[in-house]
Simulated scan of single mutants.
Amino acid sequence: MIEIKNVTKSYRRRTVLDQISLTARPGEVTGFVGPNGAGKSTALRTILGLSRPSSGTATILGKPYAALDHPARRVGAMLDPEALPGYLRGIDLLRWYAAAAGIDSARIGQILERVELADNARKRINSYSLGMRQRLGLAVALLGDAEIVILDEPTNGLDPAGIRWLRELLHQLAEHGRTVLLSSHLLSEVQQLADHIVVISRGTIVADGTLTDLAGEDDLESVFFDLTGDER
């Protein structure tokens, strides 16, 4: 389980996150959605210990990320596929990551097949399309068979068939008891992918619930578009 409790993050005089709370549970895909600049990536970085909150707590399995035993094997994360080192071949990146995290390298072939990248694994990453980089980043996140999977904008660069494939993959993970948290600025995609949705705007949580719950209170698209104004 992932828990953010009353987290505020400020940079000098600018507040990026304002007392946000969020829970992502095992067996569910939780979608974290909001317009660009709403604070999604900062929240994910806080969960992963890459950004220290000004106040509040962010925990994974009841502990801060850095306090977990073998965190790279318990948490699989993909934050920015554009940052992958282009001079490496895809398979070399996975070999390096497996060695660094103490993961059995026998899983590499299995994961490449699972993300449908086996035929391109020996190409250099700088020759990959954005969609292929997304799949490679997802391979890194899945390599350790982690209990927790955190993905930042995983649908970027994927075509409609790729998004359907991703939906099936994420729900398979949830069905096996994994906790899956993904962010997106596109509500329509999160509605296809997630069981539970948390909406953030200007660093504040403005809606939190299942699709059924949120549709019962208000039209979710109206809530979201009222915040963004230009996302239609």
Rank of each mutant, 00 (worst) to 15 (best):
Leu158His: 11
Pro154Arg: 07
Leu169Gly: 01
Glu168Asn: 15
Val198Met: 14
Leu187Gln: 05
Gly157Tyr: 12
Glu175Ala: 15
His185Ala: 01
His196Gly: 08
Val180Pro: 02
Arg164Gly: 07
Leu182Met: 12
Thr179Arg: 05
Ser184Pro: 00
Gly203Pro: 13
Thr204Trp: 04
Ala194Glu: 13
Ala161Trp: 02
His171Ser: 05
Ser188Gly: 11
Ile200Trp: 15
Leu186Glu: 10
Leu158Asn: 06
Gly162Phe: 12
Asp195Thr: 05
Ala161Phe: 10
Pro160Val: 10
Ile200Cys: 04
Gly162Ile: 13
Gln172Lys: 02
Arg167Met: 13
Ile205Phe: 00
Trp165Asp: 14
Ile163Lys: 04
Gly157Val: 08
Gln192Cys: 13
Ile200Gly: 06
Gln172Leu: 08
Leu186Ser: 12
Glu175Gly: 15
Thr204Asn: 09
Leu187Asn: 03
Gln191Ser: 07
Glu189Asp: 09
Ala194Thr: 11
Gly162Gln: 07
Gly203Lys: 05
Leu182Val: 07
Leu187Lys: 07
His196Ile: 03
Ile200Asn: 00
Gln191Phe: 11
Trp165Thr: 12
Gly162Tyr: 06
Ser184Tyr: 04
Gln191Met: 15
Ser188Trp: 00
Pro154Met: 11
Gln192Ile: 14
Ile205Thr: 14
Ala174Ser: 04
Trp165His: 03
Leu181Ile: 08
Pro160Asn: 01
Asp195Pro: 03
Gln172Pro: 00
Thr179Pro: 11
Gln192Ser: 11
Ser184Val: 06
Gly177Thr: 02
Val199Gln: 04
Ile163Pro: 01
Ala174Gln: 07
Leu182Asn: 02
Thr204Cys: 12
Val199Cys: 09
Leu187Asp: 04
His196Cys: 05
Trp165Pro: 00
Thr155Ser: 15
Leu166Cys: 14
Leu193Glu: 01
Val190Asp: 08
His171Arg: 03
